[in-house]
Simulated scan of single mutants.
Amino acid sequence: MTKYPRDEFDRVPENSARHGVHRASLEVATRSLVPVMIFGVAALCVGLLAFLIVPKISGQDTAVNPPISHASPTAATAPGTAPGTKASASATPSAAPRTTAVKTPSPTPTPGSVVDKSTPVAIFNATGIGGLAAQYSATAASDGWTVSQTGNWTGAPQSVSSIIYSGPAQKANAEALGKLLNIATLLDSAEMGIPLTVVLGPGA
């Protein structure tokens, strides 16, 4: 007990837990942070569980549903089926499509490319050897040629035997007749007035 009389500052409970001027404010601040810390720890635990467990659950869901195959059921061979049976035959490809043959039209022969032995042929002897024109005439006639005239040559002297044909249309005939009579010289001229003219020169 003090000898001084009690005043308003002495009216403090004897069992008060406060000591000092700033102790009360510190206790209130500490007490208010506890719920915040508890909430933060709980949120952290929930986030950790979601990070670890949710991917596993979603992975199991995808594994349960395998991708659907679009293969035709008839294309696969049944297990245990021997080759050559109906099941394996269904997997074989269908027969190849038929191809239609296209007939190529034959080329139209151009004038002068076809031999026509009915064309009149005149044979003249320019060698002076008697009977030579008749001899060649018989050879041409026996091969199917039409000999329309034979005789002696009255034109300019000839150095070789030749066949004179009238225009490109008679070229094939002149070549065929030259092979038959062994005459290589062919002349294109319309002066003779005859489709084919054979002039027998020296060496015939």
Rank of each mutant, 00 (worst) to 15 (best):
P120N: 08
L48T: 08
P168M: 08
Q135M: 06
A126Y: 01
P97C: 01
G131H: 01
G128H: 10
G167A: 12
S32P: 04
G59K: 02
P66D: 06
S16E: 11
L52P: 13
A78Q: 04
A138I: 08
E14N: 07
P5I: 09
A138L: 15
E14T: 12
A43I: 10
S106T: 11
D7N: 11
G40H: 06
Q135A: 13
S69D: 09
L180D: 07
A29C: 14
T74V: 09
G47P: 01
G203V: 03
L186H: 00
G130D: 10
G59S: 09
N65F: 14
A95D: 13
R31E: 01
A172M: 00
R18T: 01
Q170R: 12
I68N: 15
S159C: 07
I38L: 08
T139M: 09
A126N: 10
V115Q: 02
H19W: 13
F9A: 07
A122T: 05
A95E: 11
S88N: 06
P55G: 05
A76D: 06
G130Q: 12
S94D: 12
I38S: 10
D188S: 09
A75V: 10
A50I: 05
L186F: 00
S32A: 15
V121A: 07
I38T: 07
T108Y: 01
S88Y: 03
K179Q: 14
S189Y: 03
V34M: 13
I68D: 15
A76I: 07
V115D: 06
L196M: 10
P97G: 01
T197S: 03
L26Q: 15
G178M: 04
I183K: 01
P202Q: 11
Y165T: 05
S189R: 06
K56R: 15
L187P: 02
T108I: 07
S162Q: 09
N65V: 15
E14V: 15
K103L: 10
L26N: 15
K171M: 00
K179R: 14
T139L: 13
R31F: 12
T110S: 15
T197V: 15
V114I: 12
P73H: 02
G167H: 05
A190F: 02
L132E: 05
G193P: 04
S94H: 11
V54A: 15
T104M: 10
A133T: 05
L180P: 06
A140N: 13
R11G: 00
T77K: 02
T81V: 10
V199S: 00
A204G: 06
H22Y: 02
T62S: 15
R11M: 02
N173P: 07
T127F: 09
K86I: 12
K86E: 08
A96I: 02
N15L: 08
T146H: 14
A71H: 11
T81D: 09
P105Y: 03
P195N: 01
Y136W: 14
A63L: 05
P73F: 02
G193V: 02
A24I: 01
A42L: 14
L132N: 04
